[in-house]
Design a protein around this nucleic acid. Structure first.
Lengths: 200, 200
DNA sequence: AGCTTAACCTAACGATCGTTCGCTATTAGC
DNA sequence: GCTAATAGCGAACGATCGTTAGGTTAAGCT
């Protein structure tokens, strides 16, 4: 029927698998992600699915990497235009909150879910989560330090403490959106971020 | 060899199953909890394990209920002596943070893990999580309202917003303790709680 | 002593898990 | 046009999943 199996199509199939995996993992978790169910959803054989990755763990890592890449492309990338420091951070968290609120299917922030799922389970997935969170923390800390240097934040600001509390707001927003489905959650989260970054 | 199977022993076996389940679920999640593995750990047959509950879902609900009961017996119960309002809440969160920090095996706070695991999966387990979190929120809001009425907090305090942010601190503490194993996490969390309840 | 109840067992059930082994069919390079 | 590489399929593998049926043993009651 149709021409088949060029290199471009290979990559497209891989992307389709990743897409379905992201949707599935956002409800079932990265461990609840199943090759058989993926195959059914994609109308493929299990072997055809796993052949692109080699093993389930490799698939999990690829899915996690894709989630991080989408997040990076969406959230901090939209804040690069803002002035370094508090403005850029406010924009960043604003985008993050919008990203979590806008769609259930695409995983919101799969990274935070997987962080909780694998927090007590050593292995490559946990290591990848730690690496991604570490990079994120480094980004936040750099902006916070810039904010202190440019006197957008008081000189005595404890940036580590502030990063900790900012992370808490994001986690609360995620729970409020995904579990409680509270429509006020984004507003509350933005207010909390503003209190931390702009007020006190 | 030994006398067997009195009614008292039945309850003891059930408790042993719940104990092992709490330990297992704290690392594997409530869905990763497996009857076969429980049976192996307890040196029992699978039928002997599941016979006490009827189904895996019933077991999950029983484990969740046990986790909530232990939490309630441990955390807010130790704060009843404190003066209602900010003092009692500070004590409560202090106990919660200590409870999360003191042991990995007993689940820290299984409720928050399960909340994230089932946030996109409708069913009785999710309903039970929502009910437990609702009761907790009601407790916090009652204390916050008391604090406002007794002028421990400013009259214009947005108690819902405050409860949201307090929840965020707890989630951040959980991630910092279980995932990052940061020894400073309890200190950071207590500082954040104090900033919310006492300071400004 | 006989009977009922319940705890726990062994054994098996169908389903599904992740993975592997050929096989077919198509494409890319020569 | 021929060949090598590869995407994907079908089928099967051993393991484990949750659940059920039937049997054994002991405790409690009359």
């Amino acid at each position: 029927m149709s021409p088949r199996k060029s290199v471009a199509e290979t990559a497209a199939t891989r992307d389709r698998i990743i897409d379905s995996s992201l949707a599935l993992a956002s409800t079932e978790g990265l461990e609840g992600l199943t090759i058989g169910r993926l195959a059914t959803d994609l109308a493929m054989s299990k072997a055809g699915v796993i052949g692109h990755f080699g093993s389930k763990e490799a698939l999990q890592l690829a899915v996690l990497e894709a989630a991080v890449e989408r997040f990076t492309r969406r959230v901090p990338a939209r804040a690069v235009g803002a002035r370094p420091g508090t403005e850029r951070l406010t924009r960043t968290y604003d985008e993050w909150i919008a990203y979590m609120a806008e769609g259930e299917g695409h995983g919101g922030c799969l990274l935070t879910s997987v962080a909780s799922e694998f927090d007590g389970r050593p292995g490559p997935v946990r290591d990848a989560v730690l690496a991604a969170l570490g990079a994120w923390t480094a980004y936040v800390l750099a902006e916070l330090n810039t904010a202190v240097e440019t006197r957008q934040l008081p000189e005595r600001t404890d940036v580590d403490q502030l990063a900790f509390e900012l992370g808490g707001v994001i986690l609360a927003a995620g729970q409020s959106i995904k579990l409680h489905r509270d429509p006020q959650a984004p507003t509350r989260a933005r207010r909390a971020i503003a209190r931390l970054l702009i007020a006190p």
